[in-house]
Design a protein around this nucleic acid. Structure first.
Lengths: 215, 215, 215, 215
DNA sequence: CATGAATGAGTCTTCATTCAT
DNA sequence: GATGAATGAAGACTCATTCAT
C-alpha cells in the first residue's frame, strides 16, 4: 500500500495563480477549523469546502481525495515542526549538552505553540493509518537531526545517539501534546519548558553514565 | 456531556447464561482483530460481528452502540494496565527511587507486552473523542498512583510529585507505544527497559536537583 | 389480503387456565401502556413483554404475531364501545328522538370515558391498515344498531336512517376523540355531552325537515 | 419538544436550479404514491426515492429525515385545505347562517376532492405523533377562521362560536374522510354535501336555541 | 411451558466522488 | 474553471420472530 498510497495522496496541482494559492490556503485553514470544531469524525469534504467558501468540486480540483487533503494538512504541520527542529539541531552542533537541549526545546516549543490549535486538531488524524505513516516519517527525520547533533556533543559522550534521539523525540512530543490537550489557556509554558528540559537532560545525562552494553 | 456519554457507552447487559459469556468474549476478541486487520477506519459493527461469528443483532444485545463496544475494548485494556501500575506503586511505597522505578517499569512492561497487538490495535481509537477521554482518565489514575508513590520516596525528595508523575506516565506510555509500533518482532525488551529506566530515573533525579520555583 | 389477514390476526389460543388468563390480561394492559408511553412507533413486542413481566416467547404463545396483539387490543376496545352502543340502541327502540339520542350518547360517553387513556393509546393504530379495517367493521356494527333504532323512532321520521346513522357515528366518534386528545384533565364532560347532543339532535332533526330526494 | 421537532422537520433547502425543482416535485408526488400503494408501514425513504426515480441521497438533500418529508407532505395538504376554508370564511363574514355553511362546505369539498387520493394517503400519518401535531395546528387555524365567521352571523346568535367551530371542523373532517375511505368511485358528492350541510346547520341551529349555560 | 439469546432482513442516514450545466 | 445536484455504496441500528436450553 506504501507506494500507491503515497502517490494517491499527493496534491493534484501546484497553485500557479494567486487565486489558486488563496483558495488552497482557505481550504487548508478550513480543514483545521472543521477538525477542531467537530473532531475527526465530522471531518467531511463538504464541510471543509463550505467553511472554506468554495464548492466541493473546487476542493477536488486541488486534492484528488479526502486523504490527500488530510495528508497535506498533516504534512505541512509536521514539516514546520521538523524543519524547526532540524534548524535548531544544525545550530546546536558542536555545543554542550545543555545548550543543545535548550535550543532543541525552544525550537520545538516555538513551532508547536505558534498555533496550538493545529496540534490539537491533528491529534486524531495522526493516529490513523496514513497519518501514522507521516508521523513516523517525520519522527525519523527529527530523530536523525537530533541524533546527528547528539553525536557531536562537546561535553558528553552519548552512546547510540540516534537511538536516544528517537526516544527523546517521542517523549518530548507526547508530553508536549498532553500539555496542549489540557487546554491552551491552562498551559504554563515556563513550567512545561522546565519539565521537558529535565526530561531531556536527565535522560541523556543518565545515558552517558550507565554503560549500556546494548543500544 | 460527560455523564451522558458515559451512560450511553455502558454495556447493555451482563451475560447471565453461559452462551452469552462466550458470545461476549467472541465479540471482544473480534473487535481487537478487526482493529488490527483493518485499522480504526474499517472497524464496523458488521465486520466485528462477522469475525466473532455472530449476527449484528447479537452485538447490539450487549452494546447499545458502536461507541460502547469501543469503550469496552479500550476500558478493559486501560484498566489492566493501570491496575498493574497501581499495584506496583503500592508495592513500591517507601522504597528508594530506583527500586520504585524498576517496579513501575516492570509492571508497565508486563502489562503492555502480555498482548502487544492489543496496544497496537487500540492506538487509533485512543486518539478519537471518547477514546481520548478514557485515556485521559486512565492517565490520571496512573499519575495519581505514581505521584503517591513518589511523594513517599525514601532517598530522594521529588518536588511536586504528582505533576512529575503525570509527565512520567505520558512519556513512558509514548515510548512504549512507539516501540511496539516498530513491530513486535523487532522489539528488544531489554533495550527498551533500559531506556525507559534511564528516562524515568534521569528525569526524576534531575528534578530533585534543579530547584523549580514552580510546578 | 382480507381473509388471510383476518385469519392471521386471530389470537392463538383461548386461555383455559387461570394463569393464562392473568398473563393475557397483563400483556393486554402492557400493550396499552406501551402505546401510551411511546406511541405506535415504539410499540414493540419486546417492550410489551417486558412491561407485562413475561418473556417475548410467552407473548408469542398467545399471539402469533405483533399484528394479532394489536388487533386484540383494538378489537376489545371497539367491542366494548360498540356493545355498549348496541345496548343503548336496543333500550331506545320505540322511544322519541331525544330520548334515543340521550341514551346513545350516555352509553357512548360511559364506554369511552371508563378508560380514556385506552382511546388515546389506540388512536394511531386505528388509522393503520389492519386497524382501519377493524374500525370500519365496528363502525358498521354501530351504524346498524343506531340505524335500526332510528328507523323506529316514535316522534320523527328520519329518511334513510342507516345512512344517517353512519354519519352520526362517525361525527360523534371524531368529536369524542378530539375532546380526549385535548387532555383528559381539561375535559368538561357536561360541556361535551351538550355538544354531542346538539350535534346529533340538530342533524337528525334537520334531516326530518329537509326532503332529501336521495339517501 | 415542540420547537426542536419543528426545526428538525423543516425542509433542508429550497431548490434554486430548475433541476432541483423537478426532483423535489417528483419526491413529493412519489411520497403520496408510496403511501397510497403500501400504507404508512411501507413508507420508506428508499421506496419513495425509487418511485421518484432519484437516489436516496437526493431525497436527503431536500429533507433532513423521513419525518421532514412526511411533514412536508402533510403540511402542504393541510395548508391547501385550511387556506381554502379560511378564504370561504372571509367571504362568508356577515352573511346568514346557511350561506355561511354553504360556502364553507363548498370550499372544504372542493379542496378535499381536488385530489381525493391525497387525503386517503395521508390518513394514517395524520394519526401518528408528529402528524397529529400538524393536524391539531391546522384544525385550530380552521376553527379560528370558522369561529370568527360564526361570531358575525347576521341571522343567528351562536353562543361560544369558536368552541362550536372546533367541533364543527372536527365533525365535518371526519365525515368527509370516512366518505373518501369508502372509495372515491362510490362517492356521491351531492349526497355527501347534503349531509354535511344538515350536520352543520342542524348543529349550529340547535345551539342557538338551547341555551347552554356553559361553553 | 417459559425463557431470552440469536438471527438477519430491512431502515434510515451519511458522505466521498462525479459530472452536467 | 467553478458549481452543487445527483449518486449509491456502506454503515449504524432495530425488531419481529424463532428455537435451544
Amino acid at each position: 500500500m506504501g507506494a500507491t498510497t503515497t502517490a494517491a495522496l499527493k496534491p493534484r496541482k501546484k497553485p500557479v495563480q494567486a487565486r489558486s494559492a488563496a483558495t488552497l490556503a482557505a481550504i487548508h485553514e478550513a480543514g483545521i477549523q472543521v477538525l477542531l470544531a467537530g473532531g475527526y469524525a465530522r471531518f467531511t469534504t463538504i464541510r471543509v469546502a463550505e467553511r472554506a467558501g468554495v464548492s466541493v468540486g473546487s476542493l477536488y480540483q486541488y486534492y484528488p481525495n479526502k486523504g490527500a487533503l488530510l495528508a497535506a494538512l498533516l504534512g505541512e504541520h509536521l514539516d514546520v515542526v521538523v524543519s524547526s527542529v532540524e534548524g535548531a539541531c544544525q545550530a546546536g552542533t558542536g555545543r554542550g549538552l545543555e545548550t543543545m537541549v535548550d535550543g532543541l526545546i525552544t525550537a520545538f516549543l516555538d513551532a508547536k505553540l505558534r498555533r496550538p490549535e493545529v496540534s490539537l486538531a491533528l491529534h486524531a488524524p495522526m493516529a490513523e493509518a496514513d497519518g501514522a505513516a507521516l508521523v513516523r516519517a517525520a519522527g525519523m527525520r527529527a530523530a536523525a537531526a537530533i541524533g546527528d547533533m547528539l553525536a557531536g556533543c562537546r561535553d558528553a559522550h552519548i552512546p547510540a545517539p540516534h537511538a536516544a534521539a528517537g526516544i527523546l523525540a517521542t517523549a518530548l512530543s507526547a508530553v508536549m501534546q498532553a500539555a496542549l490537550e489540557a487546554g491552551p489557556e491552562r498551559l504554563d509554558v515556563g513550567w512545561l519548558r522546565m519539565h521537558l528540559r529535565s526530561l531531556a537532560i536527565g535522560y541523556l545525562h543518565r545515558l552517558t553514565q550507565a554503560d549500556p552494553t546494548k543500544g
